[in-house]
Design a protein around this nucleic acid. Structure first.
Lengths: 152, 152
DNA sequence: ACTGAAACAAGGTTAAC
DNA sequence: GTTAACCTTGTTTCAGT
């Protein structure tokens, strides 16, 4: 498949740290001219290896001080349950991650809310949309580490 | 504290979706001139509300096809255990998230590895660094949703 | 096929209002 | 907050390896 060489790897590392730096300084760090960098980055984007460019924000200072993980179980084995669950969670903006886990019919949800009242509202909305046999919530007391960087 | 008005809010929303767009089009979407946008964005950065600018990547295509959540328990109540645990996990680049959870002495780790062998290596390295009484791993079979956007 | 150098266009930054 | 000048930086062109 689309394999990546050492220079591309270093570019991705640099851009995962800071996507705001100029092609000039990127070129210096990877040892290439500025438009060689530019073409490689464009190629990485077109190959969907680089998928986007976003800002990171301080969630707490924007009113989302509480992070919660919800472990979800269902007893509904209907074939369309997963689709309904997927659509429902995708449509709920507080939910940042939804994962189908190993261990049959076990789902994990990661969400950000303002506070406990916000969590309860989220919970109520979710169970009204999808039948869930069991939901248990664990709240994040302290974020010890949080990064999107991959160890390339 | 540093409160944010409607326009700042819309700017953050737009930049969380795509930080690559020009000040011109940002200005059109929020209804402001291009350097009014520029000054607001700079203010948001200096206030550490916008904390950075990064690229998103396809983890699987970069060789990190397996995402794992590790639930960690310890019986070591020594006062410096948490510090040792924090330092160890922060220094391990496969680990993307470490959270102290509600329910005493319960930690959650989110990590990305290539495969099961990669997970085992991570696990071995972790328990060699920090005494852990119990570690249970759950593997992500399917990523149903994954975003960093906040519902502003 | 991929590079670097220079010309060019676009967008970020500053100054003035 | 705006508009307009400025100048860094992204983008295209082109020729060399």
């Amino acid at each position: 498949m689309n394999d990546i060489d050492e220079i591309d790897r270093r570019l991705v590392v640099a851009l995962q740290r800071d996507a705001g730096q100029s092609l000039e300084v990127l070129g210096e760090t990877v040892g290439l001219s500025r438009n060689a960098c530019w073409r490689r980055i464009r190629a990485l984007e077109q190959a969907n290896i680089i998928t986007g460019r976003i800002v990171t924000v301080d969630a707490a200072r924007l009113g989302f001080g509480l992070q919660v993980f919800m472990q979800v179980r269902t007893n509904a084995h209907a074939p369309d349950w997963l689709e309904k669950f997927s659509n429902a969670t995708r449509a709920m903006p507080e939910i940042q991650g939804v994962y189908r886990m190993s261990g049959d019919l076990d789902y994990l949800i990661r969400a950000r809310v303002a506070d406990m009242a916000g969590y309860d509202a989220l919970y109520q909305r979710l169970i009204r949309k999808v039948p869930l046999s069991d939901v248990s919530a664990s709240f994040v007391m302290e974020e010890i580490k949080e990064t999107a960087q991959l160890p390339l």
